[in-house]
Nucleic acid binder design. Structure first.
Length: 670
DNA sequence: ATCGTGCTTTTTTTT
DNA sequence: AAAGCACGAT
């Protein structure tokens, strides 16, 4: 397909800083991909001098694949296409010495972070969950705003912020001692390093000579700073963004960065992509009219030349269960009528918890579905166990990992031993693992405890040596075998079936590790430490699962749907308190929710349904639901509201609903 | 190995 | 108020 004039201009403008305002469905990914190819094939850039950053692993993966397809695997080799966080990790890895980090540092995910904060603040916060979360958010905001602990202590206002700043400092010290980093550090550290160290800055500016940033409206302060430092005076970059799709301000994203860009780079070239190639005119009109209620940084008017299309439908259900069944019934009906396939449907919702009822409805009707996102896999105990082992092997200073698995499975290292070991380590300012090998330790512990500890220590060291020899696969295989993890699972699980499930998860993890160690046509082989960190970044969820049949209904949050498109879209729970979420109503931040609705609507290519309930159970109480205000803001002549009168009894509605599904399934089978 | 009882948690979005 | 969970009884 040919590029339109605006796209063409965006691709070919390479002589200076370039901002592409890309409306939903305007082909911005195509522009990025074509531009990368153009830079390599026509402008003499080497692949290794071009970097493209996105925000999600999914997007990075997709971009990598499409670039490789369009310009050939060989030429695409060496391109830096990753998320911001992965790029940051890469920089830190190569500069770890300058940063004062030992190789093989650990990466903490937010669960680890929260657990550590809990430990560190027992006296001050008494394990108050809300406060703890508030603290974690505060620290994250500080880091995202390039505020280091010293600075935080100066600017903190009020008693609580003062306390938080103090705890931030304590947290930073402990992370340092553990040789550990959190997600925010992956941006913060490279930014500070590049800002203060001219040599390093020059080196990276030479390495990355052209930078492309996708979803630029999602950058926070430190990410934007990193961009500026990387592009330097030369300012060879393209950023692509859309302020109407800014839905991450809650985690510090600053859509104002779009404006700042114009101030920081007065010669900035502004290009608008306004033709939408995705949605029917009706869907696009609805989206435009909805988003017109929001303030805008840059004006743009999206248009489509596709068919006018079907009206948007608003369907009611009595409660959330029937809502789920209703969606399923509609999908079955629609698929039968239109000879479509399951893979063309997506169900989008506001919160992850909403997926449960939908999953159940899909499952009972034997409809294949795929649930995207959801952190569940890495939250599983068995995964965290093995990850802790790997982390300790890679970084023996990781006390968190150490404590999790030192006595798992049981090897006779109890709380008393650990307390003494901990005290000793503290006193010597060394990690607990290191303490095991300290000669004076035997004055503090009985020989039996010493023996178990030493044996454990040896085992970890040995495994590390195997891994270092480059036999990472052997290392992990032996590890799982030697700790008798399978036996442990069978002993501790409530049923054999549960143990089997867990072991299956371990196999999945093992598969990922081995694949990442080996590399493939898109990714270079990685070392074990690298693999462990990448896994923590969830940087593999989107690897092609071979058991992925493809023809499945897609389930995901509205947030996760950004950047994707589907022929037929159901948005569920389009109600006050859910789609403008209650907290954003309270905080008077409905604009962002409107953008979220906008993102949802603009995912649809052909048809779109809004689902809502008349009542919904919440915290045990049954609440009446109001249709979302966003529905009222849409052009009503493009909307068909299902008659909400039919006053059948609850029972009747259920029966007919189920009968309908059964009938449709029969029809479909023939 | 399966079932039942009682206790806890749940509703924002993610790297 | 229900669903999920851990744990104990069978």
């Amino acid at each position: 397909m040919k590029l339109n004039p605006a796209q063409n201009e965006a691709v070919h403008y390479v002589s200076g800083p370039c901002l592409v305002l890309a409306g939903a469905g305007s082909g911005k990914t195509r522009v990025i991909i074509n531009k990368i190819a153009h830079l390599v094939q026509k402008c003499g850039y080497q692949a290794k001098h071009i970097a493209a950053v996105t925000f999600t692993n999914k997007a990075a993966r997709e971009m990598k694949e499409r670039v490789a397809q369009s310009m050939g695997r060989k030429e695409a080799r060496g391109l830096w296409i990753s998320t911001f966080h992965t790029l940051g990790l890469e920089i830190i890895k190569r500069e770890h010495k300058t940063l004062g980090l030992k190789a093989g540092f650990s990466l903490f995910d937010d669960q680890d972070t929260l657990a550590l904060l809990k430990e560190l603040t027992q006296d001050e916060l008494q394990e108050d969950k809300d406060l703890l979360r508030a603290l974690a958010t505060m620290i994250s905001n500080w880091k995202g705003g390039l505020v280091i602990p010293d600075h935080a202590r100066k600017i903190a206002k009020g008693e609580q912020e003062q306390l938080f700043a103090l705890l931030y400092q304590r947290y930073a010290q402990h992370m340092k001692a553990y040789n550990a980093l959190d997600f925010d550090d992956l941006i913060l550290l490279p930014t500070l390093l590049l800002r203060h160290n001219t040599d390093v800055r020059a080196r990276w500016q030479a390495r990355i000579r052209y930078l492309l940033v996708d979803e630029y409206q999602d950058t926070n302060t430190s990410q934007y700073e990193l961009v500026k430092l990387l592009v330097g005076e030369r300012a060879r970059f393209t950023v692509v963004g859309d302020d109407d799709q800014s839905i991450y301000s809650w985690r510090g994203a600053k859509p104002q960065n779009l404006v700042l860009l114009g101030k920081d780079f007065p010669e900035l070239k502004l290009i608008k992509l306004e033709q939408n190639y995705r949605s029917s005119q009706r869907i696009l009109r609805a989206a435009n009219i909805l988003i017109a209620n929001n303030p805008h940084v840059y004006d743009k008017s999206l248009f489509s030349e596709l068919a006018y299309g079907e009206p948007l439908r608003v369907l009611f259900a009595a409660n959330e269960e029937q809502e789920a069944e209703r969606v399923v019934a509609e999908i079955i009906r629609h698929k039968f009528m239109g000879k479509t396939s399951y893979g063309e449907y997506a169900i989008l919702y506001r919160g992850n918890h909403q997926s449960r009822l939908l999953e159940r409805a899909l499952m009972t009707n034997r409809i294949p579905y795929k649930l995207s996102g959801g952190t569940s896999f890495f939250a599983r105990a068995e995964i965290k166990d093995i990850m802790a082992y790997l982390r300790l092997v890679v970084n023996p200073d990781d006390d968190n990992a150490f404590l999790r698995i030192v006595n798992l499975p049981k090897r006779g290292i109890g709380p008393a031993t650990l307390e003494k070991l901990g005290n000793f380590a503290n006193q010597k300012h060394i990690s607990m693992f290191e303490a095991i090998f300290a000669p004076e330790l035997n004055y503090h512990l009985p020989p039996a405890a010493m023996g178990s500890l030493y044996e454990f220590g040896r085992f970890i060291v040995d495994t590390g040596e195997i891994a270092q020899r480059g036999e990472g696969v052997d290392a992990i295989k032996q590890l799982i075998r030697k700790i008798n993890y399978e036996d442990y699972l069978y002993e501790t699980s409530t049923s054999a079936k549960a143990a089997e499930m867990r072991m299956k998860n371990i196999s999945e993890l093992y598969r990922w590790v081995t694949e990442m160690l080996a590399g493939d046509d898109l990714d270079e082989p990685m070392s074990l430490p690298e693999v462990v960190n990448r896994l923590t970044l969830r940087d593999m969820m989107e690897r092609n699962n071979e058991d992925e049949s493809g023809d499945q209904v897609q389930l995901m949050t509205l947030h996760a749907s950004k950047g994707l498109e589907f022929p037929y879209v159901f948005m569920v729970g389009v109600e006050e308190r859910i789609l403008p979420h209650q907290t954003s109503i309270d905080e008077d931040n409905v604009d962002e929710e409107r953008r979220l609705a906008y993102v949802g609507i603009t995912r649809a290519q052909k048809e779109l349904w809004f689902m809502l309930c008349r009542e919904r159970r919440q915290f045990g109480e049954t609440m009446r639901c109001e249709p979302s205000r966003f529905l009222m803001e849409l052009p009503q002549d493009d909307l068909i509201w299902e008659n909400r009168k039919p006053q059948q009894s609850e029972q009747q509605r259920m029966e007919t609903g189920k009968a309908n599904i059964a009938n449709l399934r029969d029809m479909f089978k023939k």
